[in-house]
Structure formats: structure tokens, C-alpha cells
Write a protein that binds this DNA or RNA. Structure first.
Lengths: 352, 352
DNA sequence: TCCCCTCGTGGAAACGTTTCCATCGTTAGT
DNA sequence: ACTAACGATGGAAACGTTTCCACGAGGGGA
């Protein structure tokens, strides 16, 4: 119908630019820009006029244009496996906090264990949409990913990933954590201990296994064979099998995500904690404290890790010369002994 | 020392632009741009040459420049109160998923209950750094915030916030959820029920109270006075008081965040669940299923809420005419009856 | 008194992209 | 065979900002 109508009449209002501000304030572009950026060398009355024009027009600077001119986006990317993991959320929150204070915004992305997404996100990076990157993707033995990472030439800090790649890394002492958990159980007399740890192709998973083994070998004990599993590749069937073998397990060290399933299994099978089974969680949460029985756990400090990582990233981004050597920071773990672990019960097992 | 050294020698490598690609491919800028944007009207051999040049040079388009030219950033902001709340993380994950599929990235920010941060973030918006916004900030009775929101003229969808403001909203039926939880307890014979709900200045909190009251009044019962609390403003002391009054409470409906504290209190005081106290959680988690006893809960569906919100936002962003009326979508809640709720025990209370 | 330096100011240039416009070559139709 | 039309192509313009450069005024020192 209105095909021939005046197009101008329905035109959207043109956004207000710094030019509008300058002309309204009766000054040049340069002066307007200087005022807005806090440059001192401007006459006070002109400064006033510019501020008034900004008020009158409701001007908001276009930060995309600013980014373009400056070659900086003031955005930091953060790539995690899954935001829904409480530890990831904790770290994101802490990183965001630190970064925001420095004027950066955080762009969050999840890979959800999908490598193609990881590649997609990493390519976003190279589009310069971010000035730096926090990476918590954990598969670190994939040569393709490593190659891609090495090809990125923006500041980047890795979380919980092998520090051997020459990148800046911030990590939790998972090896020490796992070792301490294991030692705790060994001291209680347990020998038949199962470990449900991170994936083998992640640094975290390997460290956990190393700590587990170290606790045994330091006592001249043989680490139990066939008792080590990956998260996800574990469940009631595996547990059932472990309870049916000649020397059934009496203790489990498991990632916090696996704890609900394990408790469920124990309850169903009539195993009473900690009498028939001792359990240590890798990773802590307030709910573990108030369960019956409360669950012994090794706890990291995701907030601290993230703060360190963010601070390190800020440093790297501020650094003009990217020649400085890569840094490696680590944060300890703490064993919280509660009531899900008890001395080994020599009795005839937990069959009801 | 090297003050007078040749500056050029140490110059950082100039980024590769589309101009470089064009000249290397022996074509004009326009052609290069057309190839990269999938425009069909380009001779196949030129297309080849351009792709080859891209490969050779390792060219990555600068998306900031692209945003600037297009007036679109392909970024969506997401403002939540606290990423660490599992429900928030769930929603962020789902929203990110949906948005990424449409080519958008998600910028996440937390207010941490700090209004000044909220303002700060909202002003970021107006800098056009995002094309749309998902808002889950929940204080909705603050006139200042409402004014600011109304002043923003980019597409925006609100989560779990009063739908009366004329904005597009997606929300969970918290009123129904609270009502169902309350009815469940009433049917079990409980009358002295405490409610620990969201803040009064949030839509969620008000809806929860309304549902709670509605369950009572529908049965011609008087809603209990002095038994309704806000999350955070609750704790062992309040609980203690509620157990010491003339008619002590026999059941609690509480936000999932408060459940650990409540369980802790009950354990310490020797109250056995569900004999001495029935508990319903508002919000669900897998851990609630496997606790002893397992915890009855009303569960929402954050994923669905977020998907709806993201889809709605995409629609709004694609819409040229922002004249369409505001929409309101809602997602139901479900009561999961487990073992933390039981018929009222008429006995003499739970003192051990 | 003249010159030089400094400080404040305005405007052009540049950032890297997309799009529009003009041009050129080719093909088809009369 | 000539013209008209159309499709492919190259390059200028524009997006909104910051920065650099040039210029002018004013003041102080010689």
C-alpha cells in the first residue's frame, strides 16, 4: 500500500554522536572528545558546555567505535566446560568481579564437552572480539587444540590445565588434594579404595591419579588395580561389581558430582555410612556439611584461583612486551574431615 | 640506552586486514568482502583466489569493525543477581546455547545485590555494546531501576520479574509452586508451617507468599502470622524461636539455599526428619534426592525458562518494528514428593 | 619591540569493515 | 551489426571514535 510513502517520516531517530555534542556545545570534535576522556587541557567553561550538551542530548558514547579506534575491546572471554558446575560458576563469578573492577566485561561460553564448539569459540577470539582469554577447557592432550591455542596471540591464562604447554596457568593442587584424601583413608586402615577421578585426558584427572598412587607408594603399598574410574564412566553397575569381588572396596574417593549417585547406591544396598563404606568427596559444598552423615571432602578454592587468574591476565594484557616468561600459580587444597569416613570395619561386610 | 634505535624494527606486526587479502588475491576490496560474506555474484576463480589468500595470510575478520559498520554487535547481555546460584547457572547455560546457535555471544554480569553495579551494567548497554538484554535482576519495585529500564531502547526480556511493567517477561509459576507445596503440607495435617521465601521486593518473593496464603485461605484457614521470612534474614536463632513458641512449627517450606542451614539446625537440636519436622524445598537439585531422608521439593525448569526468554529475545531483535505488544510466557512448577514430609505427628514434639 | 615557546583548540586522518555507485565487458535481441 | 541490458568488479564513502597535527593567541624573556 504505502509503497510510495515518504520514507523519511518513519525513519528511526539517528543516534546521537559526539559530533552532535560538539556542535551543540559550540566546540570542535577534539575538544568534546578530550572532555569526555578527562583530558585536563580544556578550558573550564568549554568543559561545562560539553557536559551540558551531553546531558541535553542524552549522549552515550558508542563503545564499538571506541574499541575500533583503540584496537581494544575491553572484553575478556572465558571458556569453561560447563557453567552449571558449581566450581565453574564460582570461578566465573570471581573472575568477573576482578575484571569488572578493571573496566573489563566478561564474555562467557561453555563447550559442553563439544570440541567443535571449542574451536568455534576460539575462532571468535581471533576475531579480536576479546582482549584476553581465560580458558578452563580441560582436555589438554589433544594436539589439535594445543596447536590452535598456540596460534592465538592474545593474552591468555589457563585454569586447571597442564602447566607444561608454555602458557600462563593457575591451578589447584589436585595432586596434593587426592593424596591427602587417600592418606586419610589409609590411616583409617582402608586398603581397598576406589577412586572416581577426572578424565584421563585432563590434567586434573592425571594429577588426582598421581596423588592417589603416591599415597600408596609412599607407604610401600601397591596401589589397587582396576579400582580407578573416570567420572561419568561410573555408576551403580560398576559399584555393584566392586562390592562383589574377592576383596570388596571399603572406601571411595570421588568427584563431588558422583557423590549423589554413590549415596543412592549405598542406601539402596543397605550400606550404612561410614560403618560399611567410607566416602571422601573431591570438591566441597555446604550441603555436604549438613547431610547425615556429613561428607568428608577435600576442598579447593575456586574463588582464589579465579582471582589469581584474572589478575594475571590483567597483568599480561597491560604488558606491552609479551616477552615475559609464562607464569604458573597454584592454590592449595584442604581436607575437611567429617563423618563419612571411619576406621576400617573388620566385620563381615555390610550385607543387611 | 637504545633510545635512538630504529623504532620500526621492533614494531609489532600489523594485523592482517581484508585489504591485504584483496591485494594478495589480486581483486578489489568489494570482491574480497563479497566472497567472505557468501555473496553469490562472484566468479568462481576469484572466489578461489580469495580463499587461498585468506589461508595464506591467516586472515581473521575484525568483528569490531564489522559491528561498527553494521551497527550490530551480535552480543547479548545477561544480568543476573549471582551466577553461583545453580538456577542462574542453569539459565545462563541454556540461554547461551540458544543464542549461540543464532550467532550471538553472551556477556554475563552479576549484580551481587549491588544496585550501583546494576546501574553500571545497564549503562554499558546503552553504549550499544549489546544488541539485546536478558535481565534477571529481581528487585522490581525500585522506581529508579524501573525508570532506567524504561529508558533503554534495545530489545530486552526479563526473567522472573513482575510482568506488569510493560516489558517482555518469561517467568516460572512461583505462586502455583508455593501453593502446591503448602497444600501438600496442609493435606498431611500440618498447620504450623513456616515459609522462607524470596525477598519481598521481588516478584518471586511476593508470588511465593501469595501462593502460600492462597493455599490456606482456599481451605478457610488463617495463614499463620509471623511465620514468613526472607531468605538470608533467617537462621538458627529464628528457627529456635519458632520451636519455642506456644504452637511450635511442624513444617518448613524454604528456598533451596536455606535447606542446609535448616537441616543443620534440626540435626543439632535432635529433630528427626520427617517425624519431628517436615521440610519442602523450593527449588530442586539431584542431591536432594539422595539425602537421608530425601527432600521433597517443588522444581521449576530454568532451562526452559531461559530457552523461551532467549527465543523471545531473538524474535524481538529480528523485529524491525518494535511496535508489537509485550509478551508474557510462563513455565510451570512440579511438586516432587519425597521423604522429608510426613503426616503431622501429634506426639509431644521432638525433644530427645 | 620582537621572537620564541607554550598552551588551547579545531579538524583531518585513521581504525577495518560493508555497501553503494560507477564502470566495463559480455551477451542477447532486433 | 548495433544497441540495450545485465552481471561482475573495483573503489569510494561511511560507520563514530581518538589522536595527531597545525595554527593562533598570548605571554615572557632577551
Amino acid at each position: 500500500m504505502a509503497k510510495g510513502g515518504t520514507r523519511q517520516s518513519a525513519a528511526e531517530p539517528r543516534p546521537i554522536t559526539i559530533k552532535d555534542v560538539a556542535s551543540r556545545a559550540g566546540v570542535g570534535l577534539g575538544t568534546a572528545s578530550r572532555v569526555l576522556n578527562g583530558n585536563e587541557n580544556v578550558a573550564p567553561h568549554l568543559r561545562e558546555q560539553v557536559f551540558k550538551a551531553v546531558q541535553d542530548l542524552g549522549y552515550h558514547p558508542n563503545s564499538v567505535a571506541r574499541s575500533m579506534r583503540l584496537g581494544k575491546s575491553y572484553a575478556v572471554g572465558c571458556l569453561v566446560t560447563d557453567i552449571r558446575q558449581p566450581i565453574a560458576a564460582e570461578m566465573i563469578a570471581a573472575a568477573e568481579n576482578t575484571l569488572r573492577r578493571a573496566g573489563y566485561t566478561l564474555i562467557v561460553a561453555s563447550t559442553h564437552f563439544d570440541d567443535s564448539r571449542e574451536a568455534e569459540i576460539l575462532s571468535l577470539l581471533q576475531n579480536r572480539v576479546v582482549d584476553g582469554m581465560l580458558l578452563a577447557v580441560n582436555r589438554d592432550n589433544d594436539p589439535e587444540t594445543a596447536r590452535r591455542l598456540a596460534a592465538i596471540n592474545i593474552p591468555m591464562v589457563l585454569w586447571e590445565r597442564s602447566p607444561d604447554g608454555g602458557f600462563d596457568t593457575v591451578l589447584t593442587e589436585h595432586r596434593v588434594g587426592a593424596r591427602r584424601a587417600t592418606e586419610h583413608l589409609l590411616e583409617l586402615g582402608h586398603r581397598e579404595i576406589a577412586l572416581v577421578a577426572g578424565h584421563l585426558d585432563t590434567w586434573v584427572g592425571r594429577e588426582q591419579r598421581a596423588g592417589f598412587d603416591a599415597a600408596f607408594t609412599a607407604r610401600r603399598l601397591e596401589p589397587p588395580a582396576g579400582r580407578i574410574f573416570e567420572v561419568g564412566a561410573f555408576g551403580a553397575r560398576k559399584l555393584e561389581a566392586l562390592c562383589r569381588v574377592e576383596r570388596p572396596i571399603t572406601a571411595i574417593i570421588a568427584n563431588i558430582d558422583e557423590i549423589p549417585g554413590i549415596l543412592h547406591f549405598c542406601a539402596k544396598r543397605g550400606l550404612v555410612l561410614p560403618r560399611d563404606m567410607s566416602i571422601v568427596s573431591i570438591g566441597d559444598a555446604s550441603i555436604l556439611e549438613v547431610m547425615t552423615p556429613s561428607i568428608t571432602a577435600v576442598r579447593g578454592n575456586g574463588t582464589k584461583v579465579a582471582q589469581l587468574a584474572a589478575t594475571l591476565l590483567l597483568k599480561k594484557m597491560a604488558d606491552k612486551q609479551p616477552e615475559t616468561a609464562s607464569e604458573r600459580l597454584s592454590v592449595g587444597m584442604q581436607l575437611k574431615i567429617r563423618h563419612s569416613t571411619a576406621p576400617l570395619n573388620d566385620g563381615g561386610g555390610g550385607h543387611v
